[in-house]
């Protein structure tokens, strides 16, 4: 018998605090597997944002910094400028990246910072109990859009991948989903490509990962994955939105 699916070295043993069926844990594992496969765990410096994944620094088995809400791309910029030879990544939710931290994101991308941003889009603020986010879908009920998000009042889902696709500092930009095995394999490939672009010094890379939030969506884990497949993918089409030729 040979081990074919084990525990990645780039993750600490610690159990995740995430809710049952939450995509964060899966995203953590895929990133850790990529760090293992590219053999860059000891070169990696991650930046945890503020949200459900704020505790990412307790899970990733590499040097980590915990950044103020929305400021991870700026913190990562500071780190990368000091250690240009290291692999610097941020791990951010949609409240952190698409709301309070949008300026830091766009300007890090525009500067072509050679960092990799992993963006978890679950269309809601998880840690604080299910409030509306800029990525919340029209009509979607949250604790701060109890009657369902009204676009006339609070606007439309913010499409980060499309938004950044015109920014020339961006070398690789993709949106993926992790709602079923085939998409998980595709998603991991995109994460690996993003890190490879950083290793090649090509510029800024970002992978937007559509994710489920069963607890705050008020759904079972399986229903939540269906919601990603049937609703979120419609509003947030997956694909490679920008890719400099290698």
């Amino acid at each position: 018998m040979r081990l074919i699916k084990g525990y990645p070295v780039s993750l600490k043993e610690k159990e995740f605090h995430y809710c049952p069926g939450c995509t964060h844990g899966l995203a953590h594992r895929l990133i850790a597997e990529v760090l293992d496969e590219l053999e860059i765990r000891e070169e990696a410096i991650g930046v945890a944002s503020v949200g459900c994944s704020v505790l990412a620094y307790e899970y990733f088995n590499c040097d980590m910094q915990q950044a103020a809400h929305g400021r991870a791309p700026a913190v990562a910029t500071g780190i990368k400028r000091v250690h240009p030879d290291k692999v610097v990544f941020t791990y951010q939710g949609d409240g952190d990246l698409a709301s309070i931290g949008l300026a830091e994101l766009i300007h890090a991308a525009n500067r072509g910072e050679k960092i990799t941003v992993i963006f978890i889009n679950n269309a809601i603020y998880g840690m604080t109990g299910g409030q509306m986010a800029p990525t919340t879908l029209p009509g979607q009920r949250t604790s701060t859009s109890p009657a369902g998000r009204s676009s006339s009042e609070t606007g439309f889902p913010l499409k980060i991948a499309e938004l950044l696709s015109t920014v020339e500092g961006v070398a690789y930009l993709a949106r993926v989903s992790l709602h079923d095995p085939a998409h998980i394999v595709e998603g991991k490939r995109a994460i690996k490509t993003a890190f490879e672009y950083q290793l090649a010094g090509r510029g800024f890379s970002l992978v937007e990962i559509l994710a489920a939030c069963p607890t705050n969506w008020g759904m079972t884990p399986l229903k939540a994955l269906e919601f990603v497949r049937d609703e979120m993918l419609k509003v947030y089409p997956k694909g490679v939105y920008r890719r400099l030729e290698k």
Partner: peptide
């Protein structure tokens, strides 16, 4: 048959697969 789909989709690293 150790197809490892279960381990692939598991969000909490519960399953280790051998073949």
């Amino acid at each position: 048959n150790s197809c490892l789909l279960c381990a692939l989709v598991c969000p909490d690293l519960v399953i280790t697969v051998y073949r």
